[in-house]
């Protein structure tokens, strides 16, 4: 475990926990895309199929349990909690899961490290994670609503992406056989989507105007 990996895991963890705690506390999920949250729950569920079969470390198992528990809790709040669900921008959050899930599944069937159920699901989870933020970005663009909650959430996710890339570079030079093309390429695509968002986020902050993303 290097410092970049730890920082990446911690910002990732904070992004999910900050979102869950705020939804729990203020009983509102305004500006948050349920589609993106459901996709993340699916990402964790398909990636952590090894949770009971391969023991890596106590840290690893606990983190997986927290990610699974918190992502499904967020979805539960947004769908089932009687106050939270009222604040959900349902009419604006119209992105179809299907358009992201199907291509990722097909790509995972073709591009995987080994053609087994677990490996195909693992590749699928990486492809899906790369694009799962898209419904959130579409919702931001439509509602033009970038409050503190959404801003902090997307900022923490962006920090997680950046730290993971530093982690891969570090591991590539320090661990002789560390090569994971699928992880790196899908991770890079995901980070580029964030960079695009950050460009507009930073500009709107600098000019002290409301965020205005291009259509």
């Amino acid at each position: 475990m290097n410092i970049f990996r730890l920082a990446g895991d911690m910002t990732h963890l904070m992004s999910v926990l900050v979102l869950l705690l705020k939804i729990h506390t203020i009983k509102s999920c305004a500006g948050i895309s349920l589609k993106t949250q459901e996709l993340y729950a699916l990402v964790f569920a398909t990636r952590y199929l090894d949770i009971f079969t391969d023991f890596i470390s106590v840290y690893n198992t606990i983190m997986k349990l927290i990610f699974l528990g918190s992502s499904f809790s967020i979805v539960w709040y947004m769908r089932r909690h009687k106050l939270v669900r009222r604040s959900y921008d349902k009419e604006q959050d119209t992105f179809r899961h299907f358009f992201l899930v199907l291509p990722c599944l097909l790509l995972a069937l073709v591009m995987n490290e080994k053609f087994t159920f677990k490996e195909v699901m693992w590749a699928f989870s990486l492809y899906l994670e790369a694009v799962a933020i898209l419904p959130q970005l579409v919702l931001l663009q439509r509602t033009k609503n970038i409050d503190n909650l959404t801003g902090q959430y997307v900022f923490l996710l962006g920090a997680y992406r950046a730290f993971y890339i530093f982690n891969w570079i570090y591991r590539y030079f320090t661990e002789p056989h560390y090569v994971h093309w699928i992880t790196w390429i899908s991770g890079l695509v995901q980070t580029l989507l964030y960079a695009d968002f950050f460009y507009y986020y930073f500009n709107s902050w600098k000019n002290n105007v409301k965020l205005h993303l291009p259509a």
Partner: peptide, 10 residues
């Protein structure tokens, strides 16, 4: 080495 090894990242 890029094979179907144990994945230690989250």
């Amino acid at each position: 080495s890029g094979g179907a090894d144990v994945k230690d990242e989250l």
